[in-house]
């Protein structure tokens, strides 16, 4: 079977992952809407998943691909919980701006 890595080199996948991850990080850091922060987290997760799959193919080892399934399952659960929290937060303070969530101030 033809290896996809023969057409596009592994380093490109790494670059793409790093770029996606950085986008995610900056999204988390700079956006104040909680939903977008969430999306940014998802982007980071998926960047890692992409890297998993790429290296899995590179090493001819299926473990990485299996791990991605777990990762996606956990991410789905996290989103469910996270969105539920957001709904609760919105009901309480009428906003989902993370800058307003300051009740834990010491």
């Amino acid at each position: 079977m033809d290896n996809v890595l023969n057409h596009i080199g592994i380093e490109n996948y790494i670059f793409l992952s790093v770029i996606l991850f950085c986008i995610g990080v900056f999204g988390v850091l700079y956006r104040r809407n909680a939903i977008i922060v969430f999306m940014s987290i998802e982007i980071m997760l998926n960047a890692v998943n992409l890297l998993f799959v790429a290296f899995s193919t590179y090493h001819q080892d299926a473990n990485g691909q299996v791990f991605v399934f777990f990762s996606m399952a956990v991410a789905a659960a996290e989103v469910a919980v996270g969105l539920a929290i957001l709904v609760a937060v919105f009901r309480n303070i009428g906003s989902i701006d993370v800058a307003n969530l300051k009740n834990l101030k010491g």
Binding site: V28, L29, A99, L104, G106
Partner: peptide, 17 residues
């Protein structure tokens, strides 16, 4: 030390990163 705990999630995340 208390002053570090601003409650601002953005700040926490920034430190975290």
């Amino acid at each position: 030390g208390k002053k570090l705990q601003t409650g601002s999630i953005g700040f926490y995340l920034f430190i975290f990163v």
